[in-house]
């Protein structure tokens, strides 16, 4: 298996993708906690095309995880009301029966999380769990499922899969567990893999192995990826398009290279400029003042207003997502007049 660096040619596949119908189309997704007027997630709309790799970035608490979970209706049972549509190949997942949803989960759409330990059952071997994930969706003999599971372990770069099959989760390192999760997620050849911070708990050397693996698998099998992370470096190395979320809203949506070179939302620009690697050594580091507002203190109009150095009175009204270029849109009324700094200057 080649997990080395290879150049991703982003634009042609991006253009090709633009002509296809979306695989996943999230339309006006809003989430409300019972008794709260302000929605936790407001009018989130974005799409993922077949084979596309889309990153979702933003600070802690901006709603990345909630958005990812709501696609498969996996939200915690705390009285959250969801509205809007989540179309998967044209079918509204929100309108599916529980049985219909179970058929999609793990089969067409799979999900992996930051902490693989919590998603693995400690009393079964990792091989059994992968085989079981296969048998949940396909009629297969135990022998066939086992062969497929071993093959899946091999494909995610686990050495001696015929031995590791019989390991229990606690016998594996963090990086190996995440590979097991990926093997389990991919066993049914899903069309979309949602990965929520899959490398955040890992060391940088292991992180680069996992991101390379995900990108490699996506390129070879055409599995689309929705990659939730707070790390713009990881997005740059893994994804073709990126969505910035702030305070429960999508504020920018663009091809990765475009957003790195010329972000069109002050928040994205602030996130990029905050990266210490982009400032001269020992110099003052830029940062975004303040913090993500709580639901109770959510400003009206642009939600980023109180932290934005470009705010003007006109920002006090609701800001719409508007196109600012080919495949690039942003939720900032001043986008046209601002010239914002990206990762290169």
């Amino acid at each position: 298996m080649n997990i080395g660096e290879f150049q991703t040619d982003r634009s042609p596949s991006g253009q090709k993708a633009a002509m296809e119908t979306p695989l996943l189309d999230v339309r006006d997704l809003s989430l409300r906690i019972a008794g709260n007027e302000t929605p936790l997630i407001r009018d989130v709309s974005f799409s993922v095309r077949p084979g596309e790799r889309v990153g979702i970035v933003g600070e802690s608490g901006c709603g990345k995880t909630m958005t990812g979970l709501s696609i498969l209706r996996l939200l915690p049972p705390i009285g959250i009301a969801a509205s809007g549509q989540v179309l998967f190949e044209g079918e509204d997942l929100f309108a599916l029966s529980p049985g219909g949803l179970r058929a999609v989960r793990g089969r067409d759409i799979a999900m992996i999380f930051q902490e693989p330990m919590s998603a693995l059952d400690p009393v079964f071997t990792v091989g059994e769990q992968i085989a079981e994930a296969y048998r949940a969706h396909f009629a297969a003999s135990a022998t066939e499922a086992r062969a497929r599971a071993m093959d899946a372990l091999a494909r995610v770069g686990i050495p001696a899969p015929d031995k590791r099959y019989f390991d229990y989760p606690h016998q594996l390192s963090g990086g190996m567990r995440q590979r097991v999760m990926i093997a389990m997620a991919l066993i049914c050849s899903p069309k979309l893999l949602i990965a929520d911070e899959p490398t955040t708990a890992l060391d940088v050397t292991v992180q680069s192995q996992i991101t390379d693996l995900l990108r490699d698998i996506s390129e070879r099998t055409g599995t689309a990826l929705l990659f939730i992370t707070h790390d713009l470096g990881v997005v740059a190395e893994t994804c073709t398009r990126v969505i910035t979320m702030y305070a429960g809203e999508v504020v920018e949506d663009a091809p990765v290279d475009d957003i790195l070179l010329a972000p069109r939302h002050p928040y994205t620009s602030g996130l990029l400029r905050s990266l210490p690697g982009l400032s001269p050594r020992r110099g003052k580091l830029p940062f975004i003042p303040g913090r993500v507002p709580s639901l109770a203190a959510m400003p009206v109009g642009c939600r980023f207003r109180e932290r934005c150095s470009h705010a003007v009175p006109a920002c006090e009204v609701y800001q719409r997502m508007e196109p600012v270029g080919p495949m690039h849109s942003t939720r900032c009324g001043r986008a046209g007049e601002l010239s914002l700094m990206g990762a290169v200057h």
Binding site: I3, G4, E5, Q7, T8, R10, S173, G174, G175, M176, D203, V204, T205, V206, Q207, S208, Q209, T211, D212, D231, L232, G233, V234, V235, A236, E237, V256, D257, L260, L261, L272, L275, G277, L278, A343, V344
Partner: peptide, 27 residues
């Protein structure tokens, strides 16, 4: 050298180094 080259860089694809040392395995 490997640790430094594993750091994910938030740079557009044409500015990213093409060579990268990928360490196998874990500590």
């Amino acid at each position: 050298q490997a640790l430094l080259s594993a750091e994910p860089l938030p740079l557009p694809s044409n500015l990213r180094p093409t060579r990268r040392i990928i360490l196998q395995g874990e500590i």
